[in-house]
């Protein structure tokens, strides 16, 4: 059965004017699936178990790009495709990158203004941008079984405190 298939595959490629399609071997497809599943496990593991701060996003994106490349090259046959199709894909990717990069440039242009506004209105806007280490502090404290002294060290804590005490002041009037 499999032999006759290979003949059919062979014939499809060389017959007069018939579609020149590359038939991907099943073993290759299975191998790609296994690789993709391993990479999925890896991305979950690195995100949940390893704490590299900012680098976690970089690692996750590298793994995602690797997975995406495998899907495009093998599942989507790009490896055996005409160059023109690859150009269509790469052009789209370049424009998305350009779009995000230029938008990011413009966005960070006003970062000082945003931070100044935050500083002037501490209770009205969320206290971003908090560094990764500071954000992770309460979670890490909870993991290590530390007491609740660790939590108020986050920058957002003063805002919360004023908010809660405001509620607390209102509650006795209501009750």
């Amino acid at each position: 059965m499999s032999h006759s298939n290979e003949h059919a595959e062979h014939a499809a490629g060389h017959d007069h004017g018939e579609a020149h399609q590359h038939v991907v071997p099943l073993s290759l497809l299975s191998g790609i699936l296994v690789l993709l599943l391993i990479l999925t496990g890896l991305t979950v593991f690195t995100a949940r178990e390893l704490h590299f701060g900012e680098w976690n996003l970089v690692i996750a994106m590298i793994i995602a790009c690797a997975k995406g490349t495998l899907v495009v090259l093998y599942f989507m046959h790009m490896r055996w495709e005409k160059m023109f199709n690859a150009i269509a894909l790469i052009t789209a990717l370049i424009f998305v990158t350009l779009f995000i990069s230029v938008s990011a440039l413009d966005s960070f242009q006003y970062e000082d203004n945003i931070n100044n506004y935050r500083a002037a209105n501490p209770t009205r806007v969320p206290q971003a941008i908090i560094s990764d280490a500071e954000v992770r502090a309460p979670e890490l404290a909870a993991e290590t079984g530390a007491d609740h002294e660790a939590a108020p060290s986050t920058p957002a804590a003063p805002a919360k405190e004023s908010h809660e005490s405001g509620d607390g002041a209102a509650a006795p009037h209501a009750g």
Partner: peptide, 11 residues
Amino acid sequence: YAIWRANHYDA
């Protein structure tokens, strides 16, 4: 996503 994540990581 990228812009909002950069500006509001806490969210």
